[in-house]
Simulated assay, not measured.
Amino acid sequence: MTRLAVLVPGGRGQVGSELAALLEAAPGALVHAPGSSELDITDAGAVHDAVDSFAEAAQDADLRPVVINAAAYTAVDAAESDPETAARINAAGPGTLAKACAAAGLPLLHVSTDYVFRGDGSRPYQPADEPDPRTAYGRTKLDGENAVLDSGARAWVVRTAWVYGAHGGNFVKTMARVAAQRDRLKVVDDQFGSPTWAADLARGLLQLAERVAAGSGPKRRILHCTNAGTTTWFEFARAVFTELGLDPERVDPCTTEEYPVATPRPAYSVLSGDAWAEAGLTPLRPWREALRGAFESDGEAFASG
């Protein structure tokens, strides 16, 4: 196994926290996972200093360095009213980080989203499919992808979707909280995607990081990584209730029209994992199995909402 040193901007979020935990448990690995208050990726000077210091520390420890960017502005509705902030964090920030990586000769993995697609498809989106974001969040994330890939850095973009984990807010925690407040609730049953446990995504990212650090990174520069299978928010909610030990019949289906939100959500967010598997990377397990594993591992964090 390649001995890694990994810098994880956004290291206090859902995915960053899982990356840090896995690396801290790995013998001989070095990890620096600063949160946004410790490393603001929109601050060019701070980013270059952090990358240069990290590169030096990795060299001193004789480790293979990789940067995994998990920093993002993920408030979809808020991005519509404050696109400038979303653009700084999701577009300019990754571009700055990528240029610093290029200057230091470090490879970069950048986490992105299904929201770069329009979300009106009928088959799983492939990495080569044409992006067409409908939201400010999606547009800024796509701009971030392009900034990273055009930076001159040895970089890969990994898109994912419907992420949940023990850290931060997410759908699973929301369902647990609402379950304690209401006898019944309605959840949309006409939006499709693949729930993805942050811990499984982190394992996939680290497998890719090992390949990249060893100099055998995939030729394809955009990849998709989610837990396998397709479901709706309604079926996902019922599965969460089951794992909570609650009656899933308390969750009723509704349409998107019956549950309007400020910002349109993709009706179809399924990302194809074909390119991931073709690159020799291990496909993530089925989403239902992952949800069970998540509750076995972090049940208290989810149940507390």
Rank of each mutant, 00 (worst) to 15 (best):
G169D: 11
R250F: 14
S122F: 11
T160N: 04
P218S: 12
V8H: 00
Y115A: 07
A202N: 10
S37K: 10
P124I: 09
F236I: 12
R118L: 10
K99V: 01
W156A: 12
G10E: 02
L208T: 04
Q14S: 15
V251N: 11
A213K: 02
F117E: 00
A33Y: 03
L208Y: 13
S17Q: 07
H48I: 00
T2E: 08
A176I: 14
P248D: 13
A275W: 12
D52H: 10
A128R: 12
F192P: 00
D132W: 03
G11E: 05
F241T: 13
G168H: 03
V157F: 11
T74S: 03
A58S: 09
R184G: 07
G165W: 07
F171C: 04
S17K: 04
L39Q: 01
L244I: 14
V111L: 15
L4M: 05
V158F: 13
W233E: 06
A71I: 01
S151H: 04
V111D: 02
A55G: 09
Q126M: 13
V66G: 03
S122E: 09
R64C: 02
E296T: 15
S304A: 14
A57E: 10
Q191F: 06
A91W: 04
A29M: 06
R3P: 06
R3A: 15
D252I: 11
V158I: 15
G299N: 09
A103M: 00
P124F: 06
Y268N: 08
R3W: 03
G293E: 11
E24F: 01
G204C: 11
G169S: 12
R211E: 13
G168K: 01
L63C: 10
E235W: 13
W197Q: 08
W233D: 09
I41H: 02
S37A: 14
A58W: 06
G121R: 12
A50F: 01
L281F: 14
T256D: 08
E289W: 11
D82A: 06
W156I: 14
G215V: 07
V148T: 08
E296D: 15
P131T: 13
M175Y: 11
G16K: 01
D114C: 08
E300A: 15
A179L: 10
M175L: 15
A29Q: 06
R134C: 05
Q126N: 11
A262C: 00
G119R: 00
A50N: 00
